[in-house]
Write a protein that binds this DNA or RNA. Sequence first.
RNA 1: GCCCAGGUGGCGGAAUUGGUAGACGCAGCAGACUCAAAAUCUGCCAUUCGCAAGGAUGUGCUGGUUCGAUUCCAGUCCUGGGCACCA
Length: 926
Amino acid sequence: MEYSFIDIEQKWQKSWKDNGTYSVSNDSDKPPFYVLDMFPYPSGAGLHVGHPLGYIASDIFSRYKRLKGYNVLHPMGFDSFGLPAEQYALETGQHPADTTEKNIATFKRQLDKIGFCYDWDREVRTSDPDYYKWTQWIFLKLFNSWFDHDLKKARPMETLIERFEKEGADLTLKHTPSIFTAKQWAEFSKAEQADVLMHYRLAFSAYGEVNWCEALGTVLANDEVVNGVSERGGHPVVKKKMRQWYLRITDYADRLLDGLHTVEFSESMKEMQRNWIGKSEGAELDFKVHSELTSNNSTEAEPKNITVYTTRPDTIFGVDFLVLAPEHEMVQQLTTADQQEAVATYLSYVKSRSDRERMADTKHITGCFTGAYAVHPFTENKVPIWIAEYVLSGYGTGAIMAVPCGDQRDFLFASHFNIPITNIIGHHFTGNEAHPSKEAVLENSGFLTGMIMRDALPVAIDKMVEMGIGKRKVNYKMRDAGFSRQRYWGEPFPVKWLDGVATAQDENQLPLTLPHVEKYGPGPEGEGPLANIASWKEQQYETSTMPGYAGSSWYFLRYMDPKNSNAFCDRKASDYWGQVSVYIGGTEHAVGHLLYSRMWTKVLHDLDLIGFDEPFRRLVNQGMIQGSSRFVYRIKGTQTFVSYGLIKNYETDKLHVDVNIVNGLELDTSAFKKWKPDFASAEFILEEDGKYICGSEVEKMSKSKFNTVNPDDLVLKYGADTFRMYEMFLGPLDQSKPWDTKGIEGVHRFLRKLWRLFYDEVNGKIWSEETPSAAELKVLHKTIKKIDADTEHFYFNTAISAFMVCVNELSDLKCYKKVVLEQLLVILAPYAPHITEELWHALGHEISVLDVTFPVFEEKYLTEQTKDYPVSINGKTRTNILIDLNAEQSEVEALVLSNEVVQKWMEGKTPKKIIFVKGKMVNVVV
RNA sequence: GCCCAGGUGGCGGAAUUGGUAGACGCAGCAGACUCAAAAUCUGCCAUUCGCAAGGAUGUGCUGGUUCGAUUCCAGUCCUGGGCACCA
């Protein structure tokens, strides 16, 4: 009897569906276990082999936990708001809702073929009004909450208003724009009060910079800006200030850091989040602007101080200049008359540069002197004030004190502009490069001279505080998260602008549904497409929409109670399931999505809406499946293609070619001619052996690079079980690897070989009721042990090789015994659910192999008496000697030294030392 | 530029706690079965010297620690991911 995977897979997929095998109840005696995938954005290109990698892993794990006796929640849904659907709408005029619907249908059909155990009754879609009603509802919670720094938690705005009514605000209250008394508060106008409150709301509105493209009249995503111009049309892009919504995630910075101690994320993942949050401790320090300036710019009465942020106040005596971010608010005021023109030129240059360019391009040192000077607070020397793009306005105070002898960027800047460098660390500073250290002894440093820098740090701060020119300051690299987009395909804000005051809508009126628009282009003044709708504008609704991450910041909660129309998630449901037990997804979400969803969870927890404040107990990262692109080389201006080995002789253009018409590196030239009409008349210059060899490169898998492989084709040809196991067999889950279909045959052969343990071509059924031998039980239990441990740790590639070893060994032993085989089926079921279900029922079982218990490994079958010890002389293995496992050092030494090979290598010398590690090895040192 | 990860045969990878480098699989080679093919089975398969026995070299590169290093440390090169409006 043949292994006909197509029939088997169809049969069981239908059976599981009909019997509701995967439906999950919130009411069970079993302990809950929640396995979650990062839900996909349903792109128009459909699923490629990269998508299922994590889904297969989570599916295996879910089934494994089910066999281990858990009630497993394993849902799937779609992150269906987003930019690509809108861009597609712009190009084709098709409504994003329609294309999204279509794409989701394709995704679901493709996912189902792979045999995942999702409970589709719990599916969520972020673009569904029944879903985004609750996204808007949570937004209102954020809007109506503030972060109480005394209690370190979010509280309703009413509590803050009460406080203002009773006590007003003093400087101890973070964020307050001014100090006021209770009486003054009462006298504020509504707009003034709203303005103060806006400084506290967790979702707030403020002005911020966006990528502005004048020619397109629209705001662009970073992704849409390539080399400083718009991707569409290649128009110039500049930064522009616009009113935006933000989430006050910075208030949660410390809790986001602390929370990392309570979760199982990889150390590198935690490290990335810590670096993103970027907590640093230092000081803010005021520099007086030199009085010369007042005479130059006499209109300004009093020169302000420049406040810099530094993590190294100990290096204060090494300050040779100050640098302001070009966007710093004091730049205009500081610039002297003769520097006006130079500064203006520099500012227009900076406006065209992205933050990324500004940080990455350290080879070109740019900057401009303002003409102004500050006064050093201790030496009273004149310190020139510069502006430069390497100082970013968003970090610290947007101004730094430059210490060239200790900071490499400052050093390069000083060298480039010939600014004299003060040395405060003696011989540590060579004059060729900066010496960034905290261990050097300070010289030439006034009251700090003679101290080690590390010790001088607090002394310096104390002195600055005492003089009233500085204070300790904790700083975060993380900024508040931009939360609005001038786009159509996202959640509308349930907010109206009444007399310039953002006014939250009543939650009973939710959802505020996304209205239909005629065109998807921008509104006037760079507003979103919603601004083109007269009725929307008349009602004074906010015209921007929420960003992609809004819906994905809480979807894991909705799965617990997906149909609830009275709450985002019933408290009983979230208390039953609790945190996500294991969350699986790519590291590309390391900082964005994970931080946002962690923040939302903390807010919901603070407001007592859920019982946990970290969403994900354990995080498993899968690597990216990369595409292996192939290239052909066309001689410029012709239809002649040159094989890779010969391209040096010609001037060629490099073109992507479909990987599916290339075998290894050899192009199928006739398939190539048929591939695109343009190439029908293609001619080739071939290698000596008559082949056309393609170039290759590893890149992101994408339709435009013609390097995608569709899982449907593979499932059709080899079956879902083979496909699932092959994806897992490729390598460690967390490692990125290029896709190569070549090896899939091996896994398919393995499943057929498994099949032949049950069925013989001639005799049909061959399994027996015989009692297994010790050797057979050893093979079985060795495998159970390995599979159990590897599955728990997501080491699926080694688990699969253990299955292969097991089936190879059972075949060699001609073991067709039911007792052994049925246990093998159970442990294999998570990996290959279809074939195991088929064989399990063939063995006579009525219930599904999903609902049995994972076999228990028993040590007694594995115990060994002896070991074939590797014996090395001076660390080089020379021979193996079979020794009793219980043998002690002295016995072993005697056995080893009497060995012929050992004696030969010892060349008659006496051993200095014999190292014996029980159960491992012996090493003789001569 | 900054942050994170990775670099082992022709290829994907294994060695999970410092202890026999190359498990398992692909590709390849030789053979068995077959009229033939497919399927299946058996053997070989890091490089190099050697008829062989056996030896030397070998985990990106340069050093270090150790009886012993793919594994630990320092430096360096290369590749991939992220860097705040792609998701």
